[in-house]
C-alpha cells in the first residue's frame, strides 16, 4: 500500500538568483474558455532549457504591472517550451491575457514541491481536478503517459462549472480515445447540448475504475472540493497517506521568506504547493488558518 508521507515530495534544485525574473518570449496565447487561457513561452536564450517537476509553479511578472504565482501546465519532457494556464482574476492575469506572440514576460522558478509521480509507479493513478485545478495536473498526465508501462490504471476525474469551462478540450478528446486512460468529466450546470455527466466531481469517485487499495490520488481544485474529495476517496478505500493535494495562498517571494503563504506550520510556496493529505488534514477544516 502506498504511503506518500514516507518520502519527501519532489523538489527541484535551488535557484542562484531566486528573486530576479528572467525574460521569456510569448510564442502563442491560446484561449481555453471565456476566462482562461494558456501561454506558451520560450526562453530568450535559445539554448536555455526549463526543467521542472509536475506540480511546481513559477512567479510570472508582467513588466511594470506585477507578479503572481502560476502553476506550470506543460510537458516536463519538453523543456524548450514553458506552458502556463491560468484564469483572469486580477490585474496581472488580465494583463497576461492580453499578451500576444512576441511579447515578453518575466519568469522566476520553478518553485515548490511536485506531485508524487514516481511514488505512484506500480499503482493506479487517480487525478481529481476541479476547475482550473486541471492545469497543474496536466504535467502528471504527460509524465505518466510518457512512461505508461510503469503505472496501473490512469483515471482523470474532472469537474467544472459548465461545459464551456472545460479546459484542454481537444486534448481531453484525444486522450479519451486512448484505451489506457480513463477520463470522466462532470459539470455543475449542463445545458441541453451537454450529454455528459452533471453533478459534483466527488460523485464520480465511487464508480471510477481503479483499485483503491493500490492507488495514488492527486487532487487539485478549490479547497472545499479537495476536502470532500479526500473524504470520498477514503470512503472508497484509498488511504489518507496515498492522497496528495495542491494548495493555493497569497505569495510574494515563493522561497519561504515573505510569510504570506503560511498555512499552519507550513509555507505553501516551499513546503508545498503539493502536500500529502495527512500533512494538512488537521488544518484544512479550521477557519482562517
Amino acid at each position: 500500500m502506498i504511503n506518500l508521507t514516507k518520502t519527501p515530495l519532489m523538489t527541484q534544485k535551488q535557484l542562484a538568483n531566486p528573486m530576479q525574473p528572467e525574460p521569456f518570449r510569448v510564442k502563442r496565447v491560446m484561449k481555453e474558455s471565456y476566462d482562461t487561457f494558456t501561454l506558451e513561452l520560450e526562453p530568450i536564450a535559445s539554448e536555455r532549457l526549463f526543467t521542472f517537476v509536475p506540480g511546481q509553479f513559477n512567479m510570472l511578472y508582467i513588466f511594470g504591472v506585477g507578479e503572481i504565482p502560476v502553476s506550470i501546465s506543460g510537458d516536463p519532457n519538453q523543456p524548450a517550451m514553458l506552458v502556463h494556464t491560468t484564469r483572469i482574476v486580477g490585474s496581472v492575469t488580465k494583463a497576461m491575457s492580453k499578451l500576444k506572440a512576441g511579447d515578453v514576460l518575466g519568469v522566476r522558478g520553478p518553485f515548490g514541491t511536485g506531485w508524487p509521480v514516481s511514488d505512484a509507479e506500480g499503482c493506479d493513478v487517480i487525478l481529481v481536478a476541479g476547475g482550473i485545478g486541471l492545469a497543474p495536473l496536466r504535467p502528471v498526465l504527460y509524465q505518466t503517459l510518457a512512461h505508461r508501462d510503469r503505472y496501473g490504471k490512469i483515471v482523470l476525474l474532472y469537474g467544472t462549472r459548465s461545459p464551456e469551462d472545460i479546459l484542454f478540450r481537444k486534448e481531453l478528446e484525444k486522450w479519451r480515445a486512448r484505451f489506457d486512460l480513463e477520463i470522466f468529466v462532470t459539470v455543475d450546470y449542463g445545458d441541453s447540448d451537454w450529454h455528459g455527466n452533471v453533478g459534483v466531481v466527488t460523485k464520480l469517485i465511487p464508480k471510477a475504475p481503479f483499485d483503491a487499495l493500490n492507488a495514488v490520488a492527486m487532487v487539485c481544485g478549490p479547497e472545499v472540493m479537495m476536502r470532500f474529495t479526500a473524504i470520498e476517496l477514503q470512503k472508497r478505500g484509498v488511504r489518507g497517506d496515498g492522497i496528495a493535494l495542491s494548495m493555493e495562498r497569497n505569495m510574494k517571494c515563493a522561497i519561504g521568506l515573505c510569510g504570506h503563504c503560511q498555512f499552519g506550520p507550513t509555507f505553501i510556496c516551499k513546503d508545498g504547493p503539493v502536500f500529502t493529505y495527512p500533512q494538512l488534514q488537521s488544518w484544512l477544516a479550521q477557519w482562517e488558518v
Binding site: G64, E67, K252, L257, C258, G259, Q262
Partner: peptide, 26 residues
Amino acid sequence: CFCTTVEDMTDLTGQQAERTRKWDSC
C-alpha cells in the same frame, strides 16, 4: 518578525521598472 511584501513600480515613461521589498504584517 520577518514578513515582507513586494511592490512593482514603473517610471512615467513606462520604460523603467523596479521591485521594492517592504516589511509587511500578518
